[in-house]
Computed example of a mutant assay.
Amino acid sequence: MSPVNTSSSLRPSSFLLMGIPGLEATAQHWISIPLCSMYLLALLGNLLLLAVIQSDPSLHEPMYLFLATLAITDLVLSTSTLPQMLAIFWLGPRSISFHSCMAQMFFIHTFSSVESGILVAMALDRYVAICLPLRHSAILKPSTVARMVLLILLRGLVLIPPFALLLWRLPFCGHRVIPHAYCEHMAVVKLACADTTANTMYGLAVALFVVGLDTLCIALSYTMILRAVFGLPSSQERLKALSTCASHCCVILIFYIPGLFSFLTHRFGHNVPHHIHILLATLYLLVPPMLNPIVYGVKTKQIRIRVVRVFCVRVA
């Protein structure tokens, strides 16, 4: 029998998602309540943010266009995982077809890459706005912003499909129970009954390339921003410039810290309790979409004023 046929015959038609191992019969029902609330807040916040940016021509500037793209990315990330997670927490383990599992994996990892790239683009926007304010509109034109977003999306579309292609060739020997709440790449790889070195190394290379390159670019941008800010003559100007970057720094930390923890735990955190890892991996896909619109809504004066006007008009 050919290797292709062997792999195909040993590949399950579906997987069984368990949710949070060890908490199936006790805490999952209670955990679902805050998760559902967070998901609804993420939907409401990001949809409201998109509506405000779309309806106000004064917000059609690079920073807000990047913010709108971030909101769309957050909606895709949370919606591709949370409804199925909630079904698992409420109804018990759920079956997901092999193809649907690959599709979910594609959306999770592609749009995680897109979100990382958007954070880099926003750091670049802050650098140009603070260090080259007179050239900001000339450097970051709407057409330039559109090309940057397209390149960020293309990066994910090029780097992520090989995950599924490498998994496609693996036999699973009937192993179909995924001790996870969604189809995460390494969680599926661990079910294979063959050499998965290529999958592991490719996943590590992509993570190092995307996260390593993006965090380096963000660090360089903010190093130059801080040099420019502390060179300003007025303390009031320094505080104002730092305040404009504070919200972006919060969003960066919210996104990268849980993601880095999940990545390292899969590969090196053998002593971390599995239910803690799965819970944090779940929050990684939910906390940034929920907090991003809140952070920007509070810290960005134009958005805050516009949202207040919307609610005041509705109340009146």
Rank of each mutant, 00 (worst) to 15 (best):
L283N: 01
P3Y: 10
I139T: 15
L151K: 08
A192K: 06
P3N: 14
Y39V: 02
T197Y: 01
R267F: 13
K301T: 07
L86W: 00
Y64N: 07
G45H: 01
A207D: 06
T69G: 12
D125N: 15
H275L: 07
A228F: 07
V310Q: 06
I72L: 12
L70F: 14
A205D: 02
A181I: 08
L47W: 08
S8M: 04
W30D: 12
Y39D: 01
Q236T: 12
G269S: 06
T26D: 15
C250Y: 03
L167H: 02
Y182C: 04
E184D: 14
T282G: 08
C101N: 10
W30Q: 09
A181F: 01
T300E: 12
M224I: 02
A192Y: 09
V287H: 03
I254C: 05
P293D: 09
D214H: 12
F172Q: 04
L77D: 02
T215M: 14
A281W: 00
I130N: 02
S95P: 01
L291I: 08
Y64K: 00
Q236L: 09
I96E: 13
I218V: 12
H29K: 13
L283S: 03
L153E: 11
V189D: 11
T110V: 14
M85T: 07
Y127H: 12
Y222F: 15
H29E: 04
I96P: 02
A219M: 11
I218S: 05
P288H: 09
L154R: 06
P21W: 05
A121V: 06
I152M: 10
L208T: 06
N271P: 02
W168P: 02
P273S: 10
F107H: 00
